[in-house]
Design a protein around this nucleic acid. Structure first.
Length: 802
DNA sequence: GAGGACTCGATTTTT
DNA sequence: TCGAGTCCTC
């Protein structure tokens, strides 16, 4: 980075920015067409910090994209001076695309639109040294971080049953989100046992992270903030570079992110005049407090940033009047909020349908009944979404959908990138990129089994600790022929073989081999793939497919990189991309959504909209969640979550609950959700009610203050939980192909396929080849299985040509 | 060191 | 109910 260049460039921007031509004027004015007065004000606002309080469906993204386009069209900013921060990669891509559509793709590409995390990784990679890292640093996800923390806790003789890595990790995460360093913590902590453990584990955990040349999610923000505050010259560089900072979903920022924003804008920090800051948010949609987000940031915006102005958007362009009334009623019960009422110029629309069923299976069946009706009235499956509070609830829904043959798509849950085989493969890649990555290396050291067991691992660890080496360096020593106490010659040979293989592949990677090639080499030469293919376990068959899918993701990534001309650090970039994907990134866009019902948690649904929305599990204990019912602030967050769920619906909203729900195989009586009590009676039509026999007494025992629509409140204890015996459910749609068969399939010479061929797949059935990517052993077929698109590695997938 | 049987705890929500 | 982690035997 060259400061003088940037200053010179900056001066040039300034000049261009001063005088809009008439052509510019017309283009800029066109951007204001069709906006309401508040939206218009938000778009043209100039100067001081701006807070846009954007209610659900109030055209927030439109305002943000038009504001950026307006800045560009009036010449107030160059694309390269704009940094827009979102919470998901998908939102970032969407914003870039929409701005591109307004002002041209070339401009769109020159802006920095990214999530907090990817923007910070970018900054850290550019300044790894002052941040105390090496350029190849790894990013640990929660799983990796907990693994490392587990090692630390065990080394410190902590009872990890009582104090789990998960709970201690959550505490450390909170501290990092508050930018509290280990030494600061020690001087302020309490004396309870947990605090003691945290105080001891936190510094050691950080030390081991740095030793492994790795950062966790929270470090990404915290280290960036620390680096910027310790290096004013670097901070100044970014302040000069980015003159317009826009932050979406500001209500979800935590303290560290807030401080980061201040650094980027540069409030009085140095000679540079502060950049223009725009934040957009809705405190009623703050649903990430558990992750450290604080509404404070949005509530105190005007105090934090002098001369700030606030614009409130309340007109809703998404939902019907009934849906908005329900949403307003639910959220209005939260105290201490800045009053805000959504309104719509369109009519009240259909009533909200409220159904109560006997069990979660009945509830699922009921949803399907409605879905089929909607579909026969002409709705596309893709216009329909089903939401639930927790991922575990998706199961009953999925089973019923499979039976009914309705195509569906589940977003989130056990994520692709969290699956064992994917994590293993990525750990191999990580070990190639960063030879000091202890967690990655230890994960794959004996996977597949190669005779390096606990004893050997412990011996190597001890050796590393004694000489202050990283785990990788100790493996290196073994490979060089050094003998280590407690390491058998057999194990040593195995270690040397393993490490030599990695080194060899690393050489290939460094001399420019593609990501896909490196990945393929790793899973083949390590024996990982062979092991899975030999297995009789049908689960392993789908693992092989998942690896094939990962390979095709890598292939796609390689192509993308080649096209963009970036050839350096491709492997690291791939790992980075993969580490920072979120559930929400997997949500298909409007066009790809067609043809399948979408299932997801309410959290994942934030920011989306569907014509038809089902919110399920409206029971006290499910939604609001049991663990949030005691604490007032947590209950308030549940209420905001309900508000988010309701406001996703455009045309019609279906709410349902089950009178009994089974958790851990045990059926339990559930009372109606308190949120149902708040929904105005006139907006609702009561559909099904639970069958009488389920209950000791009749329905209508609602404690509701105003409406009494909490129909059929099942009083716990008043029923025999054995009553609703859902039939034993078999997992349907399990892979029809066993591991053995698959092994054969892949042993055969690769199938010759071309677009238009009909094929039969062991799991997905018959489909049509729509395209072939790549060639030779990496050839991937794009196959359409009756609306579901799949990418399959021809060499490995259980495919037959018809 | 590997593989199988057994126990125990888990369900919030996630960048 | 189910998966991960632990213990035990070969």
């Amino acid at each position: 980075m060259d400061l003088f260049d940037s200053i010179a460039a900056d001066a040039q921007f300034r000049r261009v920015g001063s005088a809009p031509t008439p052509a510019h004027r017309a283009e800029a004015d066109a951007l204001l067409e069709g906006l309401n007065p508040e939206q218009k004000a938000a778009v043209i606002h100039q100067g001081g910090p701006l807070l846009i309080m954007a209610g659900a469906g109030s055209g927030k993204t439109r305002v943000l994209t038009h504001r950026i386009a307006y800045l560009l069209a009036t010449g107030r900013a160059q694309a390269g001076e704009i940094m827009a921060i979102t919470f998901t990669n998908k939102a970032a891509a969407e914003m870039r695309e929409r701005v591109g559509a307004l002002v041209g793709d070339a401009q769109g590409r020159r802006m920095l639109v990214a999530t907090f995390h990817s923007a910070c990784v970018r900054i850290l990679r550019q300044n790894y040294d002052p941040a105390g890292l090496k350029s190849t640093f790894s990013i640990y996800d929660m799983q990796d971080a907990q693994r490392l923390l587990g090692m630390v806790l065990k080394a410190q003789d902590v009872d990890v049953k009582r104090y789990t890595p998960r709970s201690i990790g959550a505490r450390i995460s909170d501290l990092k989100n508050e930018l509290i360093t280990p030494s600061e913590y020690i001087s302020t902590m309490g004396s309870d046992p947990v605090s003691q453990i945290v105080a001891a584990a936190y510094p050691e955990y950080n030390r081991r992270l740095r030793q492994a040349n790795a950062v966790d999610f929270d470090d990404i923000i915290m280290l960036t903030v620390q680096m910027l505050s310790e290096n004013p010259a670097i901070a100044e560089y970014y302040q000069r570079r980015y003159r317009h900072i826009l932050v979406d979903e500001y209500q979800d920022t935590n303290h560290a992110q807030y401080v980061l924003v201040r650094h980027l804008v540069g409030i009085g920090a140095n000679a540079v005049a502060p950049g223009e800051l725009t934040v957009v948010g809705d405190s009623d949609q703050s649903i990430y407090a558990f992750r450290g987000a604080t509404i404070r940031n949005i509530e105190e915006f005007e105090k934090d940033f002098p001369n700030a102005q606030t614009i409130v958007l309340e007109q809703n362009y998404r939902s019907t009047g009934n849906i908005l009334s329900a949403a307003n009623a639910v959220i209005s019960r939260n105290s201490g909020r800045r009053p805000k009422k959504l309104w719509t110029a369109s009519g009240s629309g259909d009533r909200i349908v409220l159904d109560a069923l006997d069990s979660e299976y009945e509830e699922a069946r009921n949803v399907i009944r409605h879905i089929e009706a909607l579909n026969s009235e002409g709705a596309d499956w893709g216009d329909i979404a089903v939401f639930y509070r927790t991922n575990a609830q998706s199961r009953s829904m999925e089973e019923m959908l499979m039976r009914s043959g309705i195509p569906y798509r589940l977003v989130g849950g056990t994520r692709f990138y969290e699956r064992m085989e994917i994590k293993d493969a990525l750990a191999y890649l990580q070990a190639v990129v960063n030879p000091e990555d202890t967690v990655a290396i230890r994960r794959i050291l004996n996977t597949p089994r190669r005779g390096i067991g606990d004893k050997a691992e412990t011996a190597i660890m001890a050796h590393a600790d004694r000489y202050g080496l990283s785990f990788g360096a100790a493996l290196d020593a073994v490979t060089q022929g050094e003998t280590i106490d407690g390491l058998s010659p057999r194990a040593a040979t195995s270690v040397a073989e393993f490490w030599t293989m990695l080194a060899d592949i690393r050489t290939q990677a460094e001399s420019g081999a593609s990501t896909a090639h490196v990945l393929d080499e790793l899973i083949s030469r390590s024996g990982y793939l062979a092991k899975l293919r030999e297995s009789e376990d049908p689960q392993d068959a789908s693992r092989v497919e998942n690896l094939a899918e990962l390979l095709s993701v890598a292939e796609e990534f390689d192509v993308e990189r080649r096209q963009s001309g970036e050839t350096e650090g491709t492997l690291a970039a791939f790992l980075e991309r993969v580490a920072l994907v979120a559930d929400a990134d997997q949500v298909p866009g409007d066009d790809d959504r067609r043809g399948a019902v979408t299932l997801m948690t309410v959290h994942t649904a934030k920011g989306l909209e569907f014509p038809y929305v089902f919110v399920t599990g409206l029971e006290d204990g499910t939604f609001p969640h049991r663990r949030s019912m005691e604490d007032m602030s947590e209950l308030a967050e549940e209420r905001r979550l309900a508000y988010v769920a309701i406001t996703r619906a455009r045309k019609k909203l279906f709410l349902s609950r089950a009178a009994t729900r089974s958790a851990w195989g045990q059926s339990e009586a559930m009372a109606a959700s308190r949120f149902l009590d708040d929904i105005p009676e006139e907006t609702v039509e009561i559909g099904r009610e639970p069958t009488r026999e389920t209950y000791g007494f009749s329905s209508g025992t609602s404690t509701s203050s105003n409406s009494g629509i909490a129909f059929g409140s099942g009083k716990p204890g008043s029923l025999q939980s054995t009553f609703v015996k859902s039939q034993p459910t078999k997992r349907l749609g399990s892979p029809a192909v066993g591991g053995g068969k698959l092994g054969q399939a892949s042993a055969k010479p690769a199938l010759k396929l071309e677009p238009g061929d009909r094929v039969k797949h062991g799991k997905y059935g018959e489909g049509t080849v729509t395209g072939i990517d790549g060639s030779g052993p990496q050839a991937v077929a794009r196959v359409d299985f009756g609306g579901t698109q799949k990418r399959l590695l021809i060499r490995m997938a259980p495919l037959k040509k018809l």
